[in-house]
Amino acid sequence: MELLDSFLPHGLATVIWIVLKIVLIVLPLMVLVAYYTLAERKVIGFMQVRIGPNRVGPNGLGQPIADALKLMFKEIILPTKANKVLFLIAPLLTLGPALAAWAVFPFDAELVLADVNAGLLYILALTSVGVYGVIIAGWASNSKYALLGAVRSAAQIVSYEIAMGFAIVGVLVAAGSLNLGDIVRAQDGSLFHWFWLPLFPLLVIYFISGVAETNRAPFDVAEGESEIVAGFHVEYSGMTFAVFFLGEYANMILISALTALMFLGGWLSPFQGTFLEPVFAWVPGLVWLFLKTAIFAFLFLWFRATFPRYRYDQIMRLGWKVFIPITIVWIMVVGLAVVLELPWWFD
């Protein structure tokens, strides 16, 4: 920063510094997304007693790179009667919010691009904007399967957003702040000070709603390859399809990381308050955050290999009649606990 400031005008140096930070977040994220797809194929392979990809590089480690190259050099096909502009904007609208949400994400006590007061609200707003990619893609493709997928996804995402929002309200009542860093700091203490214990129902509901929001199995009716081919991205090929793919996986990682942040204490060490704390003091907070995120990222894959797809009316029933009432009741429980200053989370 000082180096840049010395030979550039002040404003420009700040902009370049921020752009550098953004690159530092986005590049590792993209690598993570690429290897998450490999992890998915490997994990599901093992669960189904297969080997998974093992041809490119040692143990198939070059597979994501091969896939990326293949997708990049494939032809992009524009359907004749498609709305060209919207057809090409749609994948960007999926990827954009998934990346922009990381701007307020604290990776460590100090490591955050924008320390925003209303960070949690910002992330909730951006994840809800992500649905436009799916809807616009479905409509602009001018294909009935794509439109059906888009309509299914729109109804599903709007329904689960409510449960998700209420779960987040529970967290912010417990933490007393919308700032993501402060939410982690409120869980400081030990493994049992983290919010997973007092907010357990909200943890379960938040994560399941997150799975539904990202259109992953068992809630992937928007793709539903057995009945509507591949749903909203039926007409997409090559790089445009790859951008959808990137967006979906970036969103999965984001939901996993957020769950780890709000309920498992983010960058806090799990050995806090025990005799092991000094032993593991050298481990950076980023590593703990990564490990906690990996738990939920693995659950995404486990779900996909285990559960059959929900029927549409069951999805709606689960969202509206089960999740929303539970979250409302639990918000009242948390509110009461905060008012009574229940030890040891809320004193």
Partner: peptide, 26 residues
């Protein structure tokens, strides 16, 4: 007015307009 700005996106863009589009597309 950060709160209002974000809530505008969250409620109107994220929910109301999605339902709007839902109907208009059909």
């Amino acid at each position: 007015a950060e709160f209002l700005a974000i809530v505008l996106i969250l409620v109107y863009v994220g929910a109301v307009m999605v339902l709007f589009l839902f109907v208009v597309m059909m």
